[in-house]
Amino acid sequence: MRPIYSLNMQTPKQINMNEKTIYLSYWVRRYLTDYMLAAKNLSRNTVRSYRDTFRLLVGYLRDVCNKNPDKLHLQELTINVVSDFLDNQQETRNVSVATRNQRLAALQAFAKYVSMNSPEHMEWSRNIRNIPKKKAPKKMITYLEKSEMDALLSLPDQRSAQGRRDYALLIFLYNTGARAEEASDLNVSSVTLAKSKSESTIPLVTIVGKGNKTRRCPLWDNVCAILKTIINDRKPDEPLFLNRYGQRITRFGIYEVVSRYAQKLELQFPSVRDKRVSPHTIRHTTATHLLQAGVDINNVSSMKIIKRESADYHTRALSLSSVSLETGNKPLSHQ
């Protein structure tokens, strides 16, 4: 005989499920594994950043608050707890205001996810999402002047295989404004090159950026030439840029290459030391030089190098630079 349940009664399965949803650990697991990786399809760096936020939060709850994160109820993650956690990060880890705001953004995105899947937690979610970001002083855009960028590109010794690889990597970053991870992920098949001068194929590279958004960027003639020398007869599914061991270069490897030549550049341009040159600096350099060359900001933003809403980018880039359009200089010409 089937059991008869009243309207207020729940099956054992329903009871267990409702018990799970009150715990913070249940929602963190669902958010990181089911949502971020499967549904949201975010980049590895974004997932890693969000995971680090929860790892630090768990450590704070355990070591500072003396709470067992596995048994912590979601409602116990209050405004005060989150604010104290963010303050603790600034005090003990000496993180910047920008990093603090990134941690807060991760927790607020998590709160939004919870409310979408559990309406009974909407009030809790609203409270977390109303925690204000901390204001940080706006930093000036860091980029290299045309003379500095030319000097950087002249540093690799192209007589050696590694020197040619380094030069190809540096000028590729300058040509495309690609992020380090985007350049690392490229395969030989990502690049379309003309096989001969008579061929009408437009040389370009297909880059997969944040959120798996794809963009195509034309390649300069000298970039095509150096890429041909490092590709040789490699297969389409092989990495475009290799490390010294013949394996795919990582984004950390790209940072190391840029940093190594930036240190050499400081000997010629001591002011570069304050710019802390990185692959992202070259990315800013590409955007700034395009704007200085008269390229419309909408076209630059369509290349996913800068955000369109950065309206003051154009003004600052043109007003600060020593490269003047009136002199006829073309900032991106490096032949």
Rank of each mutant, 00 (worst) to 15 (best):
T33M: 07
Q102R: 14
K307S: 14
M122I: 13
S96R: 09
L169N: 01
S184G: 07
S83K: 12
E182T: 08
L186P: 05
T229M: 12
D166M: 09
D84S: 14
T92G: 04
L186W: 01
D233G: 06
Y23D: 05
S198C: 07
K20E: 11
K304F: 03
W124Y: 02
H73G: 14
S189Y: 04
I131P: 06
D166I: 10
N41L: 12
V205C: 09
Q10H: 09
T46G: 06
S160A: 10
E76M: 14
M116Q: 15
S301L: 00
N222W: 01
L290P: 00
N66M: 12
Y255A: 00
K13D: 06
S43K: 00
S278T: 15
L61V: 08
L57R: 08
K146C: 06
W27D: 12
R93L: 13
E148H: 01
A106M: 05
S259F: 04
L318C: 13
L186S: 06
C224R: 00
R103D: 06
M1R: 04
T192S: 13
Y26W: 12
R44E: 13
L291P: 01
I128E: 07
K40Q: 12
V295A: 02
G59H: 15
K195C: 14
I171K: 09
M122T: 15
Q263R: 04
N243R: 06
Q247D: 01
D87I: 13
S333H: 09
P3M: 04
K228W: 00
T285G: 01
Y35T: 01
W27T: 08
S302Q: 13
E266V: 12
P137V: 14
V97T: 11
I202V: 15
N232M: 11
K13A: 11
Y113I: 09
L57S: 05
L24V: 05
K133Q: 11
N41F: 06
V295C: 06
I128L: 14
N101M: 07
A151L: 11
T11G: 00
L318R: 11
I231E: 04
V28I: 15
N16H: 06
I79F: 15
A106Y: 07
E266G: 00
D237S: 11
I4Q: 06
L219H: 02
S271E: 15
R244F: 10
L152Q: 04
E266M: 06
L332D: 05
S125W: 04
T142W: 00
I249E: 02
